[in-house]
């Protein structure tokens, strides 16, 4: 198909080993405060103990409201931010250890950003942007440019027309294709798509989604697909992870999560999906208000302030993410020993 500029990476741990394991990831952004104020305490708890695995060859969708920590998680996985606690294990090797340096990890994991314009250097031609990463890893420039043109062709942009252009001369959809080509230039195994199609028109979005599916099959990729658009996530994902206030509240196969959601938050999110059936339409918002402030999350279950099923116990006891077969949920309703059934309802 194309000249292999960088060698493909060997599968280290076999197909059963998760491509990426995220363990206990924590990122708090301390708030600026004057030196005489007391230290500690005030921080935005953007990501607060996140565990998940991305299996080889799957697409893991991540959904949640804005501010729930989706994008911070993406940046932590890409190590654009340093985590406070927790570790990333890529195909059995800890990222940043002597066996898998950060630089080597970044050859195998790449990211596509939401803003197609600001993620391309305005002073660089398209082909130079795509060729940059391989040259960083020692590919001669001429070869990298040739490979970049092939990749542009592969993502649906004629190199003759587009390779010598600058980002401002392209449409949003075309630019996002360039960003995808740029992410693929290092022949990564994991691609993180952070709201990669969210800013596009619906028709263009569908084309780019199909391109992503096509590329995934062609290059044997694994996707971590972050979006607030439930329809898109349902379309592209194999498994779905639902986040709320820096925590994973539900994680499971896409069919299970979308058809038998277990967490009240997921249920509410799904009810907020616009329905094509007029009989299903509701005027009432399934979720009232904004999420609580992540600086000072509510005690107990973080969702209890907005939960239709909240009971007194939910204010005191924080649920853990518990597995029910392939499906995992963080809710006291599904923890029989929690005393939820006996607790009285919150008014």
């Amino acid at each position: 198909m194309s000249a292999t500029v960088l060698p493909a990476h060997a599968d280290v741990g076999g197909p059963a080993q998760p491509l990426l394991s995220v363990r206990g990831l924590v990122k708090h952004f301390p708030l600026k405060q004057a030196p005489w104020q007391r230290r500690g305490g005030t921080a935005v708890r953007a990501v607060d103990g996140v565990d998940f695995e991305v299996l080889k060859g799957e697409t893991l969708g991540v959904v949640g409201e804005s501010g729930c920590g989706k994008s911070t998680t993406a940046r932590l996985v890409m190590q654009l931010l340093a985590q406070d606690r927790g570790e990333l294990v890529f195909d059995g090797l800890t990222v940043g250890s002597h066996r898998l340096s950060l630089r080597e990890f970044r050859r195998q994991a790449q990211m596509v950003f939401q803003d197609s314009y600001s993620s391309l250097n305005p002073r660089m031609t398209i082909e130079d942007s795509v060729a940059f990463a391989p040259t960083v890893h020692g590919v001669p420039r001429a070869q990298a440019v040739t490979a970049a043109r092939e990749l542009l062709e592969r993502v649906g942009l004629q190199p003759q027309r587009f390779a010598g252009r600058y980002p401002h001369e392209l449409s949003g959809g075309q630019r996002q294709r360039v960003n995808i080509a740029r992410a693929l230039a290092l022949r990564p195994r994991l691609v993180i798509l952070d709201e990669a199609v969210s800013a596009l028109d619906k028709s263009v979005e569908a084309q780019v989604l199909n391109l992503l599916l096509d590329l995934k099959a062609a290059f044997g990729l694994t996707y971590l697909f972050i979006s607030h658009d439930l329809n898109v996530v349902q379309y592209i994902s194999d498994r779905v992870m639902v986040m709320y206030l820096g925590e994973v509240v539900e994680l499971g196969p896409v069919q299970a999560v979308f058809h038998r959601p277990m967490h009240p938050y997921t249920q509410a999110l799904l009810r907020s999906m616009p329905s094509m059936d007029p009989a299903q339409r509701t005027e009432a918002a399934p979720l009232a208000g904004d999420p609580p402030n992540p600086i000072d999350p509510p005690p107990g279950c973080r969702f209890h302030t907005r939960c239709a099923h909240a009971r007194a116990i939910c204010r005191q006891q924080a649920p853990e993410l518990r597995r029910h077969g392939p499906h995992a949920v963080r809710c006291l309703i599904h923890q029989p020993e929690s005393g939820y059934a006996a607790s009285e309802a919150l008014t």
Binding site: R75, M78, L80, L102, R103, E104, R106, R107, A109, Q110, M111, F113, D115, S118, S119, L120, N121, P122, R123, M124, S129, F132, A133, V136, H137, N179, R182, L186
Partner: peptide, 26 residues
């Protein structure tokens, strides 16, 4: 703070390369 500098960091480029190629040109 722009995404293209983040993208360059994510490609494993060293700070000096990013400054030379992406920052100075802008």
């Amino acid at each position: 703070r722009s995404d293209y500098v983040d993208a360059a960091r994510a490609s494993g480029a060293r700070s000096w390369t990013i400054v030379r190629v992406h920052v100075l040109s802008n």
